[in-house]
Design a protein around this nucleic acid. Sequence first.
DNA 1: TTATTAATTGCAACCGATTGCAGAAACTTT
DNA 2: AAAGTTTCTGCAATCGGTTGCAATTAATAA
Lengths: 347, 347
Amino acid sequence: MEKEITIYDIARELSISPTTVSRGLNNHPAVNKSTKQKIFDAAAQMGYRSNAFASNLRKKRTNTIGVIVPLLNSNFQSSVMAGMEKVANEAGYNLIISQSLENAQKEIANARTMFESRVDGLLVSVAYDTENIDHFEPFFSKGIPLLFYDRVPEHKQCTSIVINNIQAAHKATTHLLEQGCQRIIHISGNHRINVYKDRLKGYKYALMDHNIASREDYIIETDLSEKAGEEAVQKILEMDPRPDGIFVANDNCAVSCIKALKQAGIAIPDDIAVVGFNNDPITRIIEPNLTSVNYPGYEMGEVAVRSLINYLDGVSDVSITNTITLNSELVVRESSQKKEKAKARLA
Amino acid sequence: MEKEITIYDIARELSISPTTVSRGLNNHPAVNKSTKQKIFDAAAQMGYRSNAFASNLRKKRTNTIGVIVPLLNSNFQSSVMAGMEKVANEAGYNLIISQSLENAQKEIANARTMFESRVDGLLVSVAYDTENIDHFEPFFSKGIPLLFYDRVPEHKQCTSIVINNIQAAHKATTHLLEQGCQRIIHISGNHRINVYKDRLKGYKYALMDHNIASREDYIIETDLSEKAGEEAVQKILEMDPRPDGIFVANDNCAVSCIKALKQAGIAIPDDIAVVGFNNDPITRIIEPNLTSVNYPGYEMGEVAVRSLINYLDGVSDVSITNTITLNSELVVRESSQKKEKAKARLA
DNA sequence: TTATTAATTGCAACCGATTGCAGAAACTTT
DNA sequence: AAAGTTTCTGCAATCGGTTGCAATTAATAA
């Protein structure tokens, strides 16, 4: 383990001061061009690498962005990560990632770690059972920019990046209505979470706009797991009259519904049309292909980091922008397109 | 932005030296128990948070593990990340993640960044077109533990964590043979990459063990994308006699093959049986469900970080362990189980 | 030629925690 | 009671850059 080269070594080598070396390496304008060149050459030749700690210690900045995510291994979240990483890397930031495993307690611990690690900013998508955001208080009070995405808490006026879940769900439901569906079930996630609450709202509004009363027994709150899909289908099959459309709050669960429905001999979309949410790759694998709301995870990740960096650079002010809403559109596939005959029969 | 509390503040408050405060906070044995208690109390009460940079600067350790991954948004890789994060977090390490986007140039840049960030150790799964590992030389020469997983380079004696791809592919191919397949295609990835090279080997060995000569035209090298699957199917359908089994080196591509084959009116598995690799969730969505090799990504991530930390703690020695091989088994599903009739006909 | 101004460079303090070594205090042992 | 131990504390240097301010030199204006 050879010793590390420092700016002092370079300074000695070139018979100049460490100050100038430091400035030179940072491309400070007040350093002579030829001196700079000499410094760079010497640094390269001597195998110098900057010590980020010394630098951070002095500058009180880490060039590190923290991310707290419920679960890394989902298609949506890993797309988000990918987008975040790309932008962060391009801007010279490192990403420290941790997962809450959908557990508020773990999220609190993660927040603490991020705080101790002195991330310059934090991006969070809250856990399933997170009830308040007191654990982010230190960030607020220290003025560390904190930005929520996708799963955002409600009560505080925190900056967040979301899609318009209400609108998207409205579109999805309206689409089902236009296909002739009259008894539409909504399989939803935990209503405490904004995204599911909003999707539920969108569903209700769409029904309302078509003068259809929403029924409590048509709204099934689940954890959106595969198993939940199967169980929901059980319930649905027992209903009389039988529902003719299902709007599921995520694709995973929607796919499991389709599988269960097919198993029960139900024709999709003609007996029951199904619409999912997220536009995961599985939508194009299940048969029939699943109609879904495109959720631009990669873009969301890019935007999240970009916004955060803007705050950090003082380009924009955290207190001004409060919500960034990304576009999302309905991608219509076979699972919801009733044949004309079926439509007619229903109509 | 209130000022940060430092050990000096605590020292002043308690009228003791910063040295003792530092030792106290680190639970140094040479500090009186009651003094320690006072220190902890004061720290908590004053809202002290340790400055990792000052500490790192002095200790030359970052408690950070770097990960370079080809693409974050794949089911396999995000499972690996999840496993890594879990273990790292439990052990008090942070994870800095960056992706090479399957590009050697970017991988080189990432490696440099990781080096500059002074990660304590590095975990790498190499990019698609990485040809050598010279860019990791700094890690070797500085004695920073470097551990490859999944996509591991060959020529050097670097520590790596893999599954036995040869054996797994052998099992998969043998399974097809046992189902009565006689003309088995192998759709492979880039042969320069160990995993694909080994899967090809396993395929060849299995044929050999059944006294079947492997044919060059039955081996299709692709990038394993969806598109590649479709193109491969085109080729396969033009072959005469028609192949009756396909072993694909990943699930994504296998699924796209199945879709294309079905579109062409081929019955799966009876006309052509298909086996994939990875055991992604999509194996259970495509119809017929895809037989695949279970690739324990989450476990691989856990093992990778655990091993790395063992090296860091000096528990084990990098130079001793060279390869850790995880178990993987074939998960047989419908896509490869020929009906007895079909089997008989073929036999 | 002298006064100004601009361009460079360096001094020295600082960021906050860690640690080898020495010293003080308390306790044991002859 | 003197000497030897053990237990605790603190001094001061160190890790490697960064930065306000002053100083030196070169360039330009008067």
